[in-house]
Structure formats: C-alpha cells, structure tokens
C-alpha cells in the first residue's frame, strides 16, 4: 500500500502555510502529525495533490497559561500534552483523556490541533473541547477567527474550517476550582477507538455531558445535563443519558448497545465524582 504521488511543501510560518494553501488549491492538505492523514493516504482513501508540512511552525507548539485561560498550540504533540504540568494542574479532563488517545508511538507524533481538525467522531479530544467550552482559533485567507468548539464540529469528519484554513491554537477557560470532571470510554483493547466515550464537566455555573463515538460528532446530552443540575441521583441522570440524541450504530456496537453504554458511562462518572476520594 502506497500513497499517490503528491507535491511536498514546507511552511515556516502560519502566513506561509496560508499562502501555499492558496497556491496549491483545494486538493492540498496540511500535514501536522500525519497519524491519521498518512494512514488514509496509504489506503488511498485520501489522494491529495500536495502536502503542506506545517509541523515545523514553532509558534504553534506548546501549552501555556494565559489570562484566565489555558492556551494549547495546535501542533502540540499528544505526548507533550500528556507530560505538561499545566495540563495536569488545570485541565485534569484533558490529562485523563490524552492517555486514551491511541498508543504511545502515535501520541509521540499526533497533534492536538490535528485531532480537532480531523474531527473523527470516535476521538477523545473533540469531546473534551466541547465539554470545556474551548475556542478553536483558525487562520486562513480571510484572516484569523475563533469558533466555539460546539459550533466547530459539524458532522462526520466535518468542521467549520473553510478551504485553506488551519487551526492555530485552542483556548480553554480555566475551570472553577470546585469543578469536577468525568472521563470514561469503552474500547475492546487499550488504545483502540472507543465504542462509546464520555467527557464531562460539573462546575457551579455549568454542566457539560459530552459523548463521543455515539453520533456523527461530539454531542451534548442536554437531558442528562438538566437532570444533574436538578440534583437527580446518578441512576436517574443515567436513565436519560441518551434522550433526544441521534445515535449511530457502527462496526463496534449497535445503536441499542451504544445507548446502553452511554447510560452506564454516565452513571459510573457521576458516582466517581460523588465519592470523596476522587477529587480532581
């Protein structure tokens, strides 16, 4: 299995990347970690005419604490997110999720922004971005803009990115000190894509229950969020976990099974949050 032939161009800056993308046209792809793109190209599921290698744009790498928010550069590799003390201290939801992203060797190359831009429905990080009310920052021919995570993910591998645009960084508002998170996924083997997964935040002013691998995109379970805010028991919240959600069965599990998993995962997460020894 080999990819088709393509042109390879390296961008040194974001401006460079946007300019080259304009020159190469709609069939060019940005190459970041390449851990999904090159696999798809080896199968010829994707046959771009050009790859624009953005992986050396140093400005887009790293995690930092800004004013009331955490800034994650799009090219920050999963392994570096995993090792980041800023993430461990301020975004324990991401710290928990990142360990479930593929395998160590994939995490050594794959990038945070790449995972968001790909928008695989079974991926962990898009769901975390929605649960954390993250904003996705974008550069492109029309200039820079930012989109709320919940508006960024549109459908199956479909995002708000327009042709020629790339993700530059993600900003995540600092969770309140009292905030609690829940993360759980069911997969057949460690590192496999989830059959169903859950990322949730419980803060005084907001509750987010977000599922991945359940629908075409990460979805908020609003009935469950309302039940949690009413103070319902974990079992009662879990009973409405999949209410109103468009659930798609796939090769890993049927629709009915996924609905069951969704309820199980929420009950487990709420019980873990409620028990005093798990305070993070």
């Amino acid at each position: 299995m080999k990819t088709n032939a393509f042109a390879y161009r390296r961008a040194d800056t974001v401006e460079d990347a946007v300019r080259i993308a304009r020159e190469e046209g709609d069939e060019a792809r940005f190459l970041a970690g390449g851990q999904s793109l090159l696999a798809a190209m080896n199968f010829r599921l994707d046959e771009p005419t050009a790859l624009i290698d953005i992986s050396r744009i140093e400005d887009l790498r790293g995690v930092s604490r800004g004013d009331g928010e955490i800034v994650i550069g799009a090219l920050t590799r999963h392994a570096d997110v995993e090792a980041s003390p800023v993430i461990a201290e301020h975004l324990p939801l991401v710290a928990a999720a990142i360990r479930e992203v593929a395998h160590p060797a994939i995490r050594n190359r794959g990038t945070f922004g790449g995972s968001l831009a790909l928008a695989d429905p079974a991926a962990e990080l898009p769901a975390c971005a929605v649960a954390l009310d993250a904003r996705i920052h974008i550069a492109g021919p029309g200039g820079a803009r930012a989109v709320a995570a919940d508006d960024f993910f549109r459908g199956l591998y479909e995002t708000a990115l327009e042709p020629g645009e790339l993700v530059t960084h993600v900003t995540v508002p600092l969770p309140a000190p009292e905030a609690r998170h829940g993360f759980a996924e069911l997969a057949r083997r460690h590192g496999d894509y989830a059959m169903t997964g859950l990322a949730m935040m419980r803060a005084p002013e907001r509750t987010r229950v977000v599922y991945f691998a359940l629908s075409e995109r990460p979805v908020r379970a609003r009935a469950a969020e309302a039940a949690i805010e009413r103070g319902a028991s974990p079992a009662d919240c879990a009973a409405v976990a999949d209410e109103g959600l468009d659930v798609l069965g796939d090769n890993s599990a049927s629709e009915a099974t996924k609905r069951h998993y969704a309820r199980v995962l929420l009950r487990r997460a709420l019980e873990a949050i409620a028990s005093p020894e798990t305070t993070s």
Partner: peptide, 27 residues
C-alpha cells in the same frame, strides 16, 4: 500493516519511538 496499527515499523526519531509507516522520509 502500513497504516499505524501493528507497530512492526517502530523506530526512534529524535529520541521518540514513532511509526515508520506514518512518517515520510522528507519529514
């Protein structure tokens, strides 16, 4: 497998273990 699943192509690049099938020589 040539698509990043099996790990047979593991090698080290700049000290880190990566998939040799999911990285181009030009990279």
């Amino acid at each position: 497998c040539a698509h990043g699943v099996c790990g047979a192509c593991s090698l080290r690049v700049d000290g880190r273990v990566v998939r040799g099938c999911l990285m181009l020589a030009v990279q």
